[in-house]
Design a protein around this nucleic acid. Sequence first.
DNA 1: GTTGAGCGTT
Length: 267
Amino acid sequence: MSHFGRSGPPDISDTYSLLVLNITFRTTADDLFPLFDKYGKVVDIFIPKDRRTGESRGFAFVRYKYADEAQKAVDRLDGRMVDGREITVQFAKYGPNAERIHKGRIIETAQRSRHRSRSRSPRKRYRDDRDRDYRKRSRSRSYDRYERDKHRGRDKDYHHRSRSRSTSLDYKGRGRARYDDEHHSRSRSRSVDSRSPARRSPSPRKSPSLQRSTSPQRSTSPRKSPRGESPANRSRDGRSPSPRSVSPRGRPEVSRSPSPRNSNGDE
DNA sequence: GTTGAGCGTT
């Protein structure tokens, strides 16, 4: 992601990781590269980003090829003003797998992975760690916003809370249900189209014409699609939306049986 | 559009 075009960790066997804290949320690896590259050979720079928003979390990892250069960078860049903020550069204490490392140098992951397999399972702790971290140290927008929203909603709509039961349920499972819901929605926007009508009508195919009829009626603006799709997108296809084209079920039926006597009498 | 303790990805 935040690498120089490479995917995943390139090489961490002989690299020293430096933890850069207190950097601005807009600072990118490209901005830190020239700063750190000046003091040594930077192998890779990685900036953790939020899973939902995708924005920087405020810290970055700079991998140096040599420890002396990394140490020099720490001594030189630690306390440096970057983008109007004083950054904190120090050796990483933990490796990518939350393992202890010595002076920024990552211990051979292959060996430890072979020796410790059942002692601990640091790979599945991803979500758990995230949830725990967010509750403990996430005082920025994420948790703050939720807290503020929750407080506001409770403070204000506390009396009106009984008006909607599903809302309270939604609030309860907002912790991770929201993420899951979003993930599913993003992953399969198509299912939304199928799920919505399917939920209301157990048998949507019973009356296909009804669906077509409801579509234009429901949308406040006939030019805009309820799903947010641009009308130009369809027009761009080259063919205007024909009535039979809109109903996939009606199309094959007409196509399948053009004329029974046609094939018989024509030939 | 905001924020500010901390330790990481294909």
